[in-house]
Design a protein around this nucleic acid. Structure first.
Length: 205
DNA sequence: TGCCAGGCCCTCTTTAGGGCCTT
């Protein structure tokens, strides 16, 4: 089977939900997927410049002590911009990670050229019978092996990458489409649930 | 210090409301 396009799968741990209200990134995890394999990774804690609250410490396992001597967001995000290059991006609930990526890269004046596809929007269409579309639930639903770590950036980016590859394989097998391109996944993520089957059947022709 | 968002998608819809998902 031919394998699809190169993508960088990204996950952020942050101080909260909104960069517009002062929230910052505290950890980035990313893996590069080429030819259906994870070939490279990027992981770094970063110091947001203020103390994180106890909810975030408990949710992520990242403590203020761990961030005390971490490099700044600006330093880490500049390194990540170099890692990312012009590759396209995948994230689970990408609207969230995109807001933070845009905010952090804007602060250091480092634009990026890649497009985002949301693995959650694709999963809602491809796995309509899943109990829900949280990352952890989908990983369990598809029997994707994990090391048991959740809510850390690299572990979550690896799980998202494996889910992405599983969706590519499932679409390729079910609809005899090879390879399933990034562009097709982008189109799929915008289809209404009712038209997904027809859309993929048409692509198979 | 503590507060907070926003895009997608369904339905008891479209002149709206609320759940899902991310931290």
């Amino acid at each position: 089977m031919q394998r699809a396009d190169t993508v960088v799968v990204l996950d952020f741990e942050t101080t909260g939900l909104s960069p517009n209200y002062g929230d910052r990134v505290i950890e980035i995890g990313a893996v590069r997927v080429e030819q259906g394999q994870i070939v490279d990774c990027f992981q770094q804690l970063m110091n947001p410049g203020f103390r994180i609250n106890s909810f975030i410490e408990q949710y992520t396992g990242i403590t203020n002590h761990m961030l005390q001597n971490a490099p700044s967001c600006a330093e880490v995000m500049a390194q990540f911009a170099d890692f990312l290059g012009n590759d396209n991006l995948v994230a689970h609930n990408a609207s969230f990670d995109r807001r933070f990526l845009d905010a952090e890269l804007s602060l250091i004046k480092r634009p990026y050229a890649g497009a985002f596809v949301c693995s959650m929007l694709v999963a809602r269409r491809v796995y309509q019978k899943a109990p829900n579309h949280k990352l952890g639930s989908l990983v369990a639903y598809k029997d994707i092996p994990t090391d048991g770590v959740f809510h850390r950036a690299l572990a979550d980016s690896e799980m998202t990458a494996k889910l992405w590859l599983k969706m590519l394989d499932d679409i390729a097998l079910q609809y005899d489409i090879s390879p399933v391109s990034f562009q097709l996944m982008q189109q799929l993520s915008r289809k209404s649930k009712d038209t997904v089957h027809r859309f993929l059947n048409d692509k198979a022709k």
